[in-house]
Simulated assay, not measured.
Amino acid sequence: MTDARWLDPEERQAWLALLAVTTLLPGNLDGALQRQGRLTLFDYHVLAMLSEAEDRSLPMSELASRTYSSLSRLSHVVKKLEQRGWVARRQSSEDARVTTAVLTGEGFAAIEQMAPGHVGSVRQAVFDGLDHRDVADLERIGKKIVQQLEPSSWVLREPRINS
């Protein structure tokens, strides 16, 4: 016998639900973005993080943190976005060892154009079926899981935006 801590029936059902979400949601949102702008969800996320940053720029290491990716994966995607004219890489004026990703005007215009459709897809896929309490629970639970996976995560440091 093993010393495994097996999931109880309630944990198993929660795990299967989470697994289904993590499997189905990216493909659903990727599909909508592919039709709209030939982007993946990750590509869009990179553009979105840059669009929300001060001066629309971030050091590559910070952008990797905000997009939960490795520097090599991020570098590959930034190169693809550079080829479209949406992102530029620049040497930091404060530290020559630091490379900064900058959202171009063309990139900002592209994300501005895609954002309404993307938000509509997110709303339809996730939020239309939830009430305010569900949304608060989703945030609370998601942050707890992220805390276990990535304790220094940007999402845990980001202040909540109240509207």
Rank of each mutant, 00 (worst) to 15 (best):
S51M: 10
Q34G: 13
G31K: 03
R38C: 03
L63T: 03
I111V: 15
Q36P: 00
R73E: 06
S61I: 14
L58H: 07
L25R: 04
H45G: 06
L47M: 07
Q113L: 13
A101Q: 06
F108D: 13
V21I: 14
D43Y: 09
R73I: 10
T23Q: 09
T22W: 12
A101R: 05
G31S: 04
S57V: 01
L25H: 03
L71G: 11
L50G: 02
R89E: 08
F108W: 11
V98R: 12
S65H: 08
I111N: 02
R56M: 06
M60V: 09
S69C: 11
M60C: 11
L50M: 04
I111M: 07
L24P: 00
R38P: 03
T99Q: 14
A32H: 10
Q91C: 06
L71N: 09
E54F: 06
G85D: 01
L39S: 01
D55W: 02
A20R: 13
Q113G: 05
Q83G: 08
T23S: 11
R35K: 09
S70D: 13
T40H: 08
V46D: 07
F42C: 09
E106F: 10
A96E: 12
S75G: 15
A101K: 00
K79C: 05
Q91K: 13
I111W: 05
R90P: 05
R35N: 06
L25M: 05
T67H: 04
P59V: 09
S93V: 15
M49A: 10
A32M: 10
A32E: 12
L19S: 12
A88N: 13
V78Y: 02
E52Y: 05
V98E: 12
V21D: 08
A20D: 15
L19Q: 11
E82C: 12
A20H: 13
G31Y: 09
L33W: 08
Q34A: 15
S70N: 07
L71K: 11
R66K: 15
H45K: 08
A96G: 05
E82A: 07
S75C: 04
S72D: 12
G31M: 05
S72G: 01
L47E: 02
F42Y: 15
G105Y: 00
G37E: 02
G85C: 01
M60K: 13
L58R: 06
S70G: 14
I111Q: 09
A110M: 09
T40Q: 06
I111E: 10
F108R: 14
T100P: 05
G105E: 14
V77E: 08
D55H: 13
R97S: 12
S57H: 07
L63Y: 08
V87A: 01
D30F: 02
L50A: 03
E54R: 09
S75L: 10
S69G: 14
A96Y: 02
A32F: 05
S65E: 15
E54G: 04
